[in-house]
Design a protein around this nucleic acid. Structure first.
Length: 419
DNA sequence: GTTGAGCGTT
């Protein structure tokens, strides 16, 4: 029997009624008679989402064999551009979703004796664990000294990654495993603040940037180097500010990405060779310096580092990442080259970059790097930026998360004004 | 019974 179906192409307009055929189907041509170029119908289901109407041989079929009393919306073909935009939107939505998803975390530096039970006992204080593994040698069943965990809740994961962990007397690192490509986006919550002046304090930065979201850390290198880092709890907030200029205490500062782990200073993923990251020239030398500095558990087989390498005092690894990738200035270049030639000088005597005179190169703008390609490939391993905020260098305004700061001495804390 | 910058036989 013929049914009249309420149809509109604008939810704010009054619908018009168009007739179905005797068999209950609605001819697309009938629909197009009222709505030229229409190619289909959709309606809202109970949960508020759209549901499409089946179209076959030019006939629209009623859902569940009857046209409901609801208003059906006309669907028009998308033009190519609109479609493209929608797809882009989908991609960014997907990305956003991915950023909030838990991933497996690798736990490095476990005591040989640690078991799954030990890990579960330790990490369950951060939240529900969906996975706990200690990797073992198949033959001997000996622990390989690392394992994997996974939380059920993203916030718990973030909390866990934000602190250092002492398990049975060993400092362990929890981070996104290398095998999990792209997951570093999960933790890019830190931005690089360029063009700071010396009178801008960590509190100034915190007070200013907290209007955009929760600020969990501010780091200002000492001695003054005209830049700072601000870490938000929400990576979306960090992303949203990147590329912008902001006025803090009357000073225009520039916000950009703090170079994430595993990328070069242009944000590109590094080339790998034999499983090792390869960099040439002074950049590599400087990165080696980063590597050395970040080995906070002394390495017995020190053959990678034939000579002691000095490092700038008061410079945490996460800063050095950004410095090596964003701020490759001549003084550092000279130091890196000197290091290559075994003439490493004293970093403490290095002049900081002249503020306001030679601003750091912007992301994406190539910086000339002298050819020192005779430099041996180095294995680059970064300190995870998320735990570096808890390290003892520089000025942090926020108290690190509780739970695992056995490495902190009382005097550390007092120096930081935190006790 | 040793070791420590190590990234996952699912």
């Amino acid at each position: 029997m013929v049914q009249y179906i309420q149809v509109t192409d604008d939810e704010n307009e009054e619908p018009i009624e168009i007739p179905s055929e005797e068999d209950g189907t609605l001819l697309l041509s009938t629909l197009a008679g009222q709505f030229p170029n229409a190619c289909g119908l959709k309606y809202r289901n109970q949960s508020g989402g759209f549901r499409g109407i089946r179209l076959s041989d030019g006939r629209l079929h009623p859902p569940d064999n009857t046209w409901k009393a609801c208003v059906y919306l006309v669907v028009y073909p998308k033009d190519a551009k609109q479609k493209e935009e929608d797809e882009e939107e989908d991609e960014s939505q997907k990305l956003k979703k991915a950023e909030k998803k838990c991933s497996d975390l690798i736990v490095l530096g476990l005591p040989w004796k640690s078991t799954e039970d030990d890990l579960r006992n330790y990490f369950s204080k951060f939240g529900e664990l969906l996975l706990v593994q200690v990797k073992r040698d198949q033959k001997t069943n000996q622990s390989k000294g690392y394992g994997f965990i996974r939380f059920g809740n993203y916030e718990d994961q973030i909390k866990c990654m934000n602190v250092r962990h002492n398990i049975d007397g060993r400092w362990c690192d929890v981070t996104i495993p290398n095998s999990n490509e792209g997951a570093h986006k999960l933790i890019s919550r830190k931005v690089f603040i360029a063009r700071c002046t010396e009178d801008i304090t960590a509190d100034d930065l915190k007070n200013y940037f907290c209007q955009f979201g929760e600020v969990v850390d501010v780091f200002i290198p000492k001695p003054f180097r005209s830049f700072a880092f601000v870490t938000f709890s929400d990576p979306d907030v960090a992303h949203s500010l990147c590329g912008e200029d902001h006025i803090v205490k009357g000073v225009s500062v520039h916000v950009s990405y703090a170079a994430p782990k595993g990328t070069d200073r242009f944000g590109e993923k590094k080339a790998q060779q034999n499983g090792q990251v390869v960099q040439k020239g002074a950049a590599g030398a400087y990165t080696q310096l980063v590597n050395h500095h970040t080995n906070w558990q002394p390495h017995k087989n020190n053959h990678q580092y034939p000579k002691p390498i000095p490092f700038p005092p008061n410079m945490p690894p996460h800063e050095m990442n950004a410095v090596s990738f964003n701020l490759f200035n001549s003084a550092m270049m000279a130091a890196a080259q000197a290091m290559l030639q075994g003439q490493a000088g004293n970093w403490a005597h290095m002049a900081p970059p002249p503020p306001q005179v030679a601003p750091p190169p912007q992301a994406g703008v190539p910086v000339s790097v002298p050819d020192t390609s005779q430099a041996a490939p180095v294995h680059v391993s970064y300190a995870p930026p998320q735990s570096s905020s808890a390290w003892g260098w520089g000025h942090h305004t926020t108290e690190p998360q509780p739970g695992s700061y056995a490495g902190w001495t009382q005097s550390n804390r007092q120096q930081q004004g935190w006790s």
